[in-house]
């Protein structure tokens, strides 16, 4: 479904952020992208969603296709069902909860049907008229997910969905992600929390200094000694 082939990305014509990165997400699958801060995860997402120009970067080699066609701009991605949940949630604080959802539906060229989101996250229904800046971190992540759902995703790209959230909230998010996937939506999970990512995904890639250093089935990566040492810590064992 999403195919990234030999992509190079550089910023301001100088700094190489990605070098020859290849990755693919099959329809309905869950793929994890693991790596430390600065490994190039954000650059990869920007390359896929055609959002590099804003950061004075560009794709200098390789190609990205979705359903076999190149992606033109962020709007094109959204309208073709490739939806990104950005790092740090990026909720519009001065817009109400419902306006945030409405904006996302409008951006995808759809009419807003919030019922599914409100069923998944009843707290959002209660707070539908409140401005986004009054939400807690967990509620903001729910709203960010909700925004992606009302856009009618076929592939969701999640950038650090667990960052800074309490364990119960993370558990709730994971449950919802499984439900969404069960409906046939593919997931590309970009996480520093490798344990979480590898437990959800079927296939995983490890990004180091702008290159894919390792890839394979998620359970295999979970047992890889290097991955265990570097990303899963000495004691952390995947659930």
């Amino acid at each position: 479904m999403l195919i990234v082939r030999d992509v190079d990305v550089s910023y301001q014509g100088a700094v190489a952020a990605l070098r020859g990165v290849s990755l693919s997400v099959p329809a309905g699958g869950i793929v994890a992208l693991v790596g430390n801060n600065g490994a190039g995860k954000s650059s990869l997402l920007r390359a896929v969603s055609r959002n590099l120009r804003r950061h004075r970067g560009e794709i200098t080699g390789g190609a990205v296709t979705f359903d076999g066609e190149p992606l033109r701009d962020p709007g094109d991605c959204v309208r073709r069902g490739l939806i990104q949940v950005p790092e740090g949630r990026r909720i519009f604080g001065r817009l109400t909860v419902e306006e945030n959802l409405r904006l996302a539906a409008h951006g995808a060229g759809k009419k807003l049907v919030p019922d599914r989101v409100y069923d998944l996250f009843p707290v959002l229904a209660e707070r539908r008229r409140q401005p986004g800046l009054l939400l807690s971190g967990g509620e903001q992540q729910m709203l960010a997910l909700g925004r992606a759902l009302v856009a009618g995703p076929r592939l969701l790209m999640l950038d650090e969905p667990s960052l800074g959230l309490a364990p119960q909230v993370v558990a709730r998010i994971v449950t919802v992600l499984r439900e969404i996937n069960a409906d046939g939506v593919a997931l590309l999970l970009v996480e520093q929390n490798a344990a979480l990512a590898l437990s959800l995904a079927q296939h995983a890639y490890v990004l180091e200094l702008g290159r894919v250093s390792l890839e394979g089935p998620a359970e295999k990566l979970r047992d890889d000694p290097d991955v265990r040492r570097l990303y899963l810590g000495a004691t952390a064992v995947a659930t």
């Binding site: 969603s49 959002n51 804003r54 962020p74 709007g75 991605c77 959204v78 309208r79 990104q84 950005p86 990026r90 519009f92 604080g93 001065r94 817009l95 306006e99 904006l103 996302a104 409008h106 951006g107 995808a108 060229g109 925004r147 856009a151």
Partner: peptide, 14 residues
């Protein structure tokens, strides 16, 4: 209003 608050996110939402 969204664009005034955060252009990048607005663009990413389409």
């Amino acid at each position: 209003r969204a664009a005034a608050e955060d252009r990048e996110t607005a663009a990413l939402l389409g």
